[in-house]
């Protein structure tokens, strides 16, 4: 084979690989932005913080923001008003009941689906 042809093929393959790789990245961020549920009073060593897809939740909430943002736009699920000991139970009940009602989203028994160490690490690395 001629050197020029080999170079062209190699270049095309490299471009293809690059497109596929970037495509994968885009897929992974398909439900971006991801947000972290903070201030639940549970330390990270007991459970990694929940990281969820805001886009997916907007879609399933039928654009009614007050389902989660019960008090104000920048607050959610009454976390600030509840006593720290009650936050975890209240948040679990709120999230799980909606997931069951809509028939979508993880159940309470699927801990790691919401408390995903992987997604938390991704989010933390992006913020840096």
């Amino acid at each position: 084979m001629k050197t020029a042809s080999i170079k062209r093929i190699a270049f095309s393959l490299a471009v293809l690989a690059g497109i596929l790789f970037l495509g994968q990245q885009a897929q992974a961020d398909g439900d971006a932005p991801f947000i972290k549920i903070a201030k639940t009073g549970i330390s990270a060593e007991k459970m990694p913080a929940v990281v969820l897809s805001h886009e997916a939740h907007i879609k399933h909430a039928d654009d009614d923001c007050s389902v989660c943002h019960t008090e104000a736009e920048d607050k959610y699920l009454n976390i600030d008003t509840l006593a720290p000991a009650k936050r975890q139970g209240a948040v679990h009940a709120a999230c799980a009941s909606c997931h069951i009602q809509k028939g979508k989203g993880p159940l309470l028994a699927q801990c790691s689906s919401c408390h995903s160490q992987q997604r938390l690490a991704n989010l933390d690395s992006k913020k840096k």
């Binding site: 330390s43 007991k46 990694p48 000991a85 009650k86 975890q88 309470l108 801990c111």
Partner: peptide, 24 residues
Amino acid sequence: VAGHVVLLKSALGIEAGLPMLPLA
């Protein structure tokens, strides 16, 4: 273990539960 404590609290409808072990 955290998952079990949470599930039991939820199933029984109570707020108080056993202390949770760090995952590690």
